[in-house]
Design a protein around this nucleic acid. Structure first.
Lengths: 143, 143
DNA sequence: ACTAACCCTTAGCAAGGCTAATGAGCTACG
DNA sequence: CGTAGCTCATTAGCCTTGCTAAGGGTTAGT
């Protein structure tokens, strides 16, 4: 049974570790390729299909203006398509384009290289741990 | 035995989840209090004791100029002390001040409130999972 | 038909990464 | 010694990516 202190301590260390790994991952970005934020958007659209800008924003835990800008960049590069929703013309439907899909797949091989590389060095127990923890992170992010 | 695809997929989803939770955590910041970056620095200094700016930067996975700026802000607010190292006067010793310690402790209660709060809602298995995974994240960040 | 609510965008700000170039201090070697 | 070169930190300046506030177009409700 964890004491209150232990829980708070866990929360604190966990958060710091999270941030460090986030920064470390950011370092792996090649200069040409998409940024982590952009990649997250592409990945989400690939996994969940087209959605409105607002849905996408709330999914990614950012405010709509931030998503407007992020998607604008990606549309400019032809990686997303963006059409006014026919049913409700206030909304904008965002979808990943073929070019986006291609880039995503090609990029993933390279992008996740070191992470996957290091994953390979983990024991299978540790890998299983990460596998279990990913949805948990999402549940925390949702709450 | 995980296939190459599964490993890469795990890496990818894990990364996206990581980013989302990071953003979600960022939202919890009160307007007055220290930012996540600042808090990470304070926490690291509390846990590991005084160190030079360079050590701190490499510990936190940022470049020295970034750490110069971050610490400058914190020194200005009296949360860190900063003295030229006597042995090597190029170096700067950074330490957390009493005010910094006080703020850190007081703030942790509040800051980690929702995370700890949600931790409390997890099963103890899940909590154990997070406990195991924090050092793992650090190992990945180090590599 | 008017008003209210909603979705997105525009404008502008802050935090916090980065690189490149500079300054100050140490070290090693002729 | 003295100087040439390295190392640590800083300065200057850039970019991304969060945010809020305010505004425009669209829809829905009375």
């Amino acid at each position: 049974m964890p004491s209150a202190t232990a829980t708070s301590e866990l929360a604190s260390e966990f958060r710091v570790s999270l941030m460090r790994l986030g920064r470390r991952l950011r370092l792996e970005r090649p200069d040409e390729g998409p940024t982590p934020t952009q990649l997250a958007v592409l990945g989400t659209l690939e996994r969940h299909g087209p959605m409105t800008l607002g849905e996408l924003a709330s999914h990614e835990k950012v405010q709509p203006p931030s998503m407007t800008r992020t998607t604008a960049t990606l549309v400019e590069r032809g990686l997303l398509t963006r059409v006014t929703a026919p049913a409700d013309r206030r909304q904008v439907q965002i979808a990943i384009s073929d070019a986006g899909l291609a880039l995503l797949r090609e990029d993933r091989k390279r992008r996740d290289a070191w992470l996957a590389g290091h994953f390979d060095k983990l024991t299978s127990d540790e890998r299983a741990l990460l596998h279990q923890v990913a949805p948990l992170l999402d549940r925390l992010a949702q709450s």
